[in-house]
């Protein structure tokens, strides 16, 4: 069992891939770069041959996929905050790919708390920015005292709890799935992991990506109301 624990710990730690001027670049950042490069290349390749007239099946499929992803983003946030829809869609694509990239043998970037913390940080910045943009600084400050003044500490606490909850939810889900997958692979590395991988890597990963985006959208909607 000591062997398993050690290997698990080793798998869980995010290694520093290389060091530039004493700054260690971790694996998650590198994997994110890989994802970015791959998606950039794919989207340039796919969108270079788009036709207005008589689109092929592939183009229709791509258009449908992209439009439905955008619709998910704008559908969560509603008509009022349309400008934040594109961000939600982009984040949805990123988390979806990051969560499911474990299938290809990469370590999921969302397994690193830096990534989920960064996502949560951006979410809370966007939420508060949306609130300030909509209500102005005074209105935003006043909104902490709503509905009654006594809940102000709780509202202030919420500014920290929201991103923490988002961060930990995503991180915990991904790392939990990762640990369970490693345990199953330790028991039987051949056939058994396939159905579990279907659930933990693909289904759970996509659901968690959607939940993250959904909650961010919900918070933004709440902030701009």
């Amino acid at each position: 069992m000591g062997n398993l624990g050690e290997s698990l710990i080793e798998e869980l730690t995010c290694e520093t891939v290389f060091t530039v001027h004493g700054i260690g670049i971790s694996e998650s950042v590198v994997v994110t770069w890989v994802i970015m490069a791959a998606v950039l290349l794919a989207s340039i390749l796919l969108t270079s041959r788009l036709k207005v007239e008589n689109p092929g099946r592939g183009q229709l499929l791509l258009e449908h996929a992209v439009v439905s992803i955008q619709n998910i983003g704008t559908g969560i946030i509603g008509e009022e905050g349309r400008q934040y829809g594109a961000y939600l869609s982009a984040i949805l694509i990123y988390i979806g790919i990051a969560n499911t990239i474990g299938i290809l043998g990469f370590k999921p970037p969302t397994k690193d708390m830096n990534v989920t913390a960064a996502l949560a940080l951006m979410s809370i910045i966007l939420i508060e920015f949306a609130g300030i943009h909509k209500k102005g600084v005074r209105g935003w400050l006043k909104s902490f005292a709503e509905p009654i003044a006594i809940v102000t500490p709780i509202n202030i606490l919420e500014v920290f709890i929201k991103p923490l909850s988002l961060c930990m939810r995503l991180f915990g889900n991904v790392i939990g799935a990762f640990v369970i997958m490693k345990l199953i692979e330790h028991i039987l590395p051949w056939v058994l992991p396939v159905p579990f991988s279907m659930y933990f890597d693909i289904f759970d990963g996509l659901i968690q990506a959607y939940v993250f985006v959904f909650l961010t959208g919900l918070f933004i909607k709440e902030a701009i109301e």
């Binding site: 930990m168 915990g172 790392i175 939990g176 659901i207 968690q208 959607y210 939940v211």
Partner: peptide, 24 residues
């Protein structure tokens, strides 16, 4: 239901994360 389950699951995940914190 899926959304609600994913949200409800979060508490279990928090427990798991805390356990992981304690161990590591």
């Amino acid at each position: 239901l899926l959304l609600g389950s994913a949200l409800a699951e979060a508490t279990a995940i928090y427990g798991f994360v805390i356990a992981l914190f304690i161990i590591i």
